[in-house]
Write a protein that binds this DNA or RNA. Structure first.
Lengths: 132, 132
DNA sequence: CTTGAACCTCAAGTGGCTTGAGGGCGTAGC
DNA sequence: GCTACGCCCTCAAGCCACTTGAGGTTCAAG
């Protein structure tokens, strides 16, 4: 399997595969005439990487997950990764919701208070009101 | 006012101020003996930039907002920026909530179905289940 | 006059790729 | 054999918004 075939099969771009290899996430495959030739293992690994990235794990976390898969560590390890990740997703959601509330309040404040005045006086742009 | 004083007053780091100048967000100030000397206008501008960044506007959006302030465009322009921004914040929240649901489902699936088996067989790591 | 803090410029690193330049390999048709 | 084409190769730079570091200059205090 050449790189283009693998890329299509796993749903990942060709440069991305080379990038993963360059950072040591995918093990370098055999070569024929200078060109990379992959087997089924590479497809499995790349599919797993893609899955992790779709779940928004970082590259480093993905690397750790791959290692735990290759060592056949118990499932509880995997769950721990996922739970930690879930925590950071929830934290980010909370931050964004606070930001949403702030911006929404500024917009409605503008509508009721200052709409029609000039930009420099708009409540949305007053420093210190509702900093993130 | 030298750069260090401005930095403390506006709550921004010194290199960040120089960076803002390098990308044309802050107008270059006068110099005395090669060193930057700022007036009150710079403080106002920098405070506004900081405010925009805290509200998570991009640099380009911040640039547009600054321009609308300097031209004293009507407040409705500002509100439009804020509303657009609010839309993208809400979109990101929706994406993260979907991701949260996916990961949470995988974790509880692991607990009820596969907990105790080896990582490669864990439901969390099965490609195609619950892609973002 | 010396010390030390604050200032200066320029370059590189962060994350996770994408894009581009400039060239090599493999196969099909002539 | 020869060309045309698509796929492959490497290496470098670009994206965002800074931060960090190296190596050197200026200023204010003692």
């Amino acid at each position: 399997m050449r790189i283009g075939v693998l890329a299509k099969a796993a749903g990942v771009s060709v440069p991305t595969i080379r990038y993963y290899e360059s950072i040591g996430l995918l093990t370098p495959p055999a070569r024929q005439g200078g060109q990379r030739v992959y087997g089924g293992e590479a497809f499995k690994a790349l599919s797993l990487i893609r899955h992790c990235r779709e779940l928004d794990f970082s590259i480093d976390e993905t690397r750790d997950i791959l290692a735990s898969v290759q060592r056949r560590l118990p499932c509880s390890d995997t769950k721990t990764f996922a739970e930690k990740h879930l925590g950071s997703i929830r934290k980010k959601i909370a931050e964004l919701r606070a930001l949403e509330a702030t911006v929404a309040a500024l917009v409605s404040g503008c509508e009721t208070t200052c709409c029609g005045s000039a930009a420099p006086d708009c409540v949305i742009l007053q420093p210190g009101c509702g900093a993130a």
